[in-house]
Every structure is written in C-alpha cells, then in structure tokens.
C-alpha cells in the first residue's frame, strides 16, 4: 500500500489526491510539474486526480535557483 514519490516510498491511502500529496509533502514551491506514471497532470486537475496504489509520482521542481 505505497506509492513512489520522486523515487521514495510514500504511504498510500484510498482517495489520496495529487493536491493532498503535495500539501503533505510540503512541496510549496510553485514552479513545478507533476507526472503520474510518466503522464503530465496539469495543475487544475491536481485536486480531482486520485492516486492509485503503486503509482509512480514525479513532482518535478523546475527552478535551478539562485
């Protein structure tokens, strides 16, 4: 009962959405793109996209910074 988030295991639960995951991981940096199993999920869909057990999530932070 886990998903992979940026290569690391994260506890999965029924009904977990992308928006909740981002909130729980404190991924507050706004310049990021989310991929689920390699498919880009646009921001307006984060609240309604429910993750499935075993999903591979990549939250790509885009800033190279400084």
């Amino acid at each position: 009962m886990a998903i992979l988030v940026n290569g690391e295991s994260y506890a999965w639960r029924q009904g977990l959405t992308i928006a909740q995951l981002i909130d729980e991981k404190k991924f507050s940096f706004p310049l990021k793109t989310v991929f689920v199993n390699g498919k880009r999920i646009p921001k307006p869909e984060h609240k309604k996209t429910i993750l499935a057990d075993g999903d591979e999530v990549q939250v790509l932070h885009l800033m190279s910074g400084g």
């Binding site: 939250v59 800033m63 190279s64 910074g65 400084g66």
Partner: peptide
C-alpha cells in the same frame, strides 16, 4: 551559489 544551485534537482527531484 552563483555557479550552481542544484538542491531541487538533487535533493527533491532525485534527478
């Protein structure tokens, strides 16, 4: 950090 700011790529994205 003017030469490189790689923290998100490395620590967060694990790229």
């Amino acid at each position: 950090h003017d030469e490189a700011w790689l923290i998100f790529m490395d620590m967060v994205n694990k790229q």
